[in-house]
Design a protein around this nucleic acid. Structure first.
Lengths: 219, 219
DNA sequence: CGCACCTAGGGTACTGAGTACCAGACGAGC
DNA sequence: GCTCGTCTGGTACTCAGTACCCTAGGTGCG
């Protein structure tokens, strides 16, 4: 009924919020200010975003749904890889946001309330990861291992994302692969690993055997 | 000047808060209610605790200081073990609280605002761990590895603490040792490990070689 | 002794986030 | 035309958190 000429109210509120937070600072901006600049009423703000903090964050619900679907589609044996792919979905989302993500990062690093809020959002992903991993594993320490891997995946993702946001990382997906290699090594459970020495008898010389093994390992 | 007969105001406020939160629920308890039951003014509440949430949490500052001291005292080579010991300090603190810790756990699991607050507290420990680990390490991935280990230590600690709070774990320190073994395995960097196949020539039969190797491995 | 200073508490008034409730505008469908 | 659902605006309220000023007690010092 009002001027929908430019963009829907929800988007205009986000634009207004980012602009005002950057101009005047988070604490010196009221929800009234945001609503006024967006050309809507205060009520409309709270209808779209549950709190003043929420307006600068992406809609986690959609991402969480996509990730849950990805995890459910994974085979039990590759659930750890699926979790990594889920983290990649999140990373791609942030990278796809571009400047908006960088703007949010600047705000988060300077406003404690927003930092707390971001953490609360991340916990949802971590919980989802841990839950699905625990469901697929069935050893005695499944719960513990699931939580460790979930924490690792989130930490690795954050490390890479922060690097990209700061401009230190130019290829975030490659950096994610590298970071996740540490986490996956833990996930595959090298902890209780046993090493066996296999002895076989052959007429070939040591050099011949070494060559054969090397070729076999190299395919 | 007022009735200091029983306990100092700060403690009375904590008692009042826990009691009221349990009786009426967190949302249906106002700061005025808490102050009134503690027999102090509202101003006094905010003088001691920065927010309504803060009143049920332990003073992290003291713990963080002790932990920082413990970490600074550690040798570079054993910094990862020192982080584990730091986590043990925190665990002991909570276990030492006894029922109070269980009361808090009940509140945290049911009140989102308190959950967020707890997470914000944990981040401080995780940041401290990651920072000290990063300082002591100097390889290319030091920052990443430090964050992964810090996240793992916190996750392991939380897993054990939750188990104890729920009554599933009776010996939390032993459980911590066990959980930390997973984290430390990652910290010691098994990641870039290479496996070599050693081929040697011998006149002995496969059975003899296997026996010899087995005896050597068993000392 | 008197004075300055510090600490712990109390009271009042204000801002602003978040909630509840009601009312109007619009489009779709019957 | 009428109704239903959806989006919106406005008003009034609660309550957390802040700012400011006040009082009572204890302590050190000249």
């Amino acid at each position: 009924m009002t001027t929908d000429a430019v963009a829907p109210a929800a988007e205009r509120l986000v634009e207004a919020a980012f602009a005002l937070f950057e101009e005047r600072g988070y604490d010196d901006t009221t929800v009234d200010d945001i609503a006024a600049r967006a050309g809507v009423g205060r009520t409309t703000f709270f209808r779209h975003y549950g709190s003043k903090e929420a307006v600068i964050f992406p809609a986690h619900d959609g991402l969480l749904d996509r990730i849950a679907a990805r995890l459910d589609a994974a085979a039990t044996a590759t659930i750890d890889l699926a979790v990594v792919e889920a983290a990649r979905i999140v990373l791609r989302h942030y990278v796809g946001e571009g400047d908006r993500a960088r703007q949010r990062y600047r705000l988060i690093t300077s406003v404690p309330a927003l930092r707390d809020r971001e953490l609360a959002g991340q916990r949802q992903y971590q919980r989802l990861f841990a839950g699905r991993l625990r469901d697929r594993w069935d050893d005695a320490d499944a719960g513990l291992r699931a939580e460790l891997v979930a924490a690792g995946v989130v930490a690795a993702h954050n490390h890479v994302l922060r690097g990209w946001l700061r401009g230190d990382v130019t290829d975030p997906e490659a950096a994610l692969d590298h970071a996740m290699s540490y986490v996956l090594a833990q996930a595959t459970g090298d902890v209780e690993t046993t090493t066996s020495v296999v002895v076989v008898q052959s007429r070939r010389s040591a050099a011949e055997v070494a060559d054969t093994v090397r070729r076999a390992l190299e395919h």
